[in-house]
């Protein structure tokens, strides 16, 4: 990171005032917490016991890799981040970190996390992490986000890979069980982000991002949210249907899925004139709870099953 960031018009030098927390903010720590949690579930649920040191290394690599893709996203999206209220205080638009520094930071951490995971854990997990970073930074950020309202549907794959990477870190392979964990997050992403986009549609419109509510309209978005909620509810139960988990998970996933459908139904029934959009905000909040809860129960189920030798 360069000390001298830029020269003023008068030729003066400007020293950086970016602190470590600004660089931490580039890694999107809140997104990272979800990545760490789901990757951890993938590692622990896998049928292969991994040494705790290797678990910690794999989780760290996945977290840093996800953070690096976040930094690359912030580097590329600095122009649109500046005009959205939710993102205008991020380190680049606020001027604390220069775009070139964020780019270098993201690239170095990407390479370091992939190499470390590949060399010390296994190359299937390393390759999956590399693909995830590429998918988020290039396919989603540079291509889909500004081009199609299906941006977060396809781009959601990037956020769905962590449990699969965790599983691959433990087993060195991909299996139906890890694909189901991937699918739960993949199908959960559209209703989660479209609920946010409904009550933040002005923000996205100002930034020129083709989110579903500004392109297809609110009515169509609400219908699609409901359709995806139904899919999430069904896919959430599949690990139990396939016999990968016990009844407790099956019952909990059914209840959580029904809750998801209920909240999505409230959004569908929300009148066009309702600008407070409480049902959309409630669905956004519930969707976060849903994902944490379903993965926590999956984790608990696999730990208990292992302890009981099932």
């Amino acid at each position: 990171m360069a000390l001298v960031e830029q020269h003023g018009l008068d030729g003066s030098v400007r020293l950086s005032e970016a602190t470590a927390s600004d660089y931490l903010a580039l890694l999107k720590p809140r997104v990272m917490s979800l990545v760490v949690f789901t990757a951890f579930v993938g590692i622990v649920a896998a049928p292969v016991h991994l040494n705790p040191v290797m678990v910690l290394t794999a989780i760290l690599c996945i977290a840093v890799g996800a953070g690096a893709s976040g930094a690359l996203n912030m580097w590329y999206d600095a122009d649109i981040d500046a005009v959205m209220t939710r993102t205008s205080k991020r380190p680049i638009p606020s001027g604390r970190v220069q775009p070139g520094e964020a780019l270098a930071f993201g690239l170095v951490l990407s390479a370091l996390s992939v190499m470390t995971l590949g060399i010390f854990v296994n190359w299937v997990a390393g390759a999956l992490l590399a693909f995830t970073i590429f998918f988020y930074a290039v396919v989603y950020t540079m291509w889909l986000k500004r081009w199609t309202p299906q941006n977060i549907v396809i781009g959601g794959a990037a956020g769905s890979f962590p449990p699969m990477i965790g599983w691959a870190a433990a087993t060195g392979s991909i299996s139906l069980e890890s694909v189901l964990l991937f699918l739960i997050i993949f199908l959960w992403t559209p209703p989660h982000f479209w609920a946010l986009a409904l009550f933040k549609s002005g923000d996205y419109e100002r930034a020129g991002i083709p989110m579903m509510p500004n392109v297809a309209g609110e009515t169509s978005t609400k219908r699609q949210i409901f359709a995806y909620a139904l899919l999430v509810a069904v896919v959430g139960v599949l690990p139990w249907t396939f016999g990968f988990t016990g009844e407790v998970y099956g019952l909990a996933a059914t209840a959580l899925g029904l809750g998801f459908v209920w909240y999505a139904w409230k959004v569908l029934a929300m009148p066009e004139a309702d600008r407070a959009m409480k049902p959309a905000k409630a669905l956004f909040g519930y969707s976060l709870l849903y994902l944490f809860a379903i993965f926590a129960i999956y984790l608990g189920d696999s730990v208990v099953a292992r302890m009981l030798g099932i």
Binding site: E17, A18, T19, A20, V53, T57
Partner: peptide, 27 residues
């Protein structure tokens, strides 16, 4: 403010490097 920011960055780099060395050793 610039000195404080530099100290903060230096500490973060030191911690990250130490963590990396420990990871390489332990793994």
């Amino acid at each position: 403010a610039q000195l404080k920011a530099r100290r903060s960055r230096n500490m973060a780099i030191a911690i990250a490097l130490a963590a990396f060395v420990i990871i390489v050793y332990a793994t």
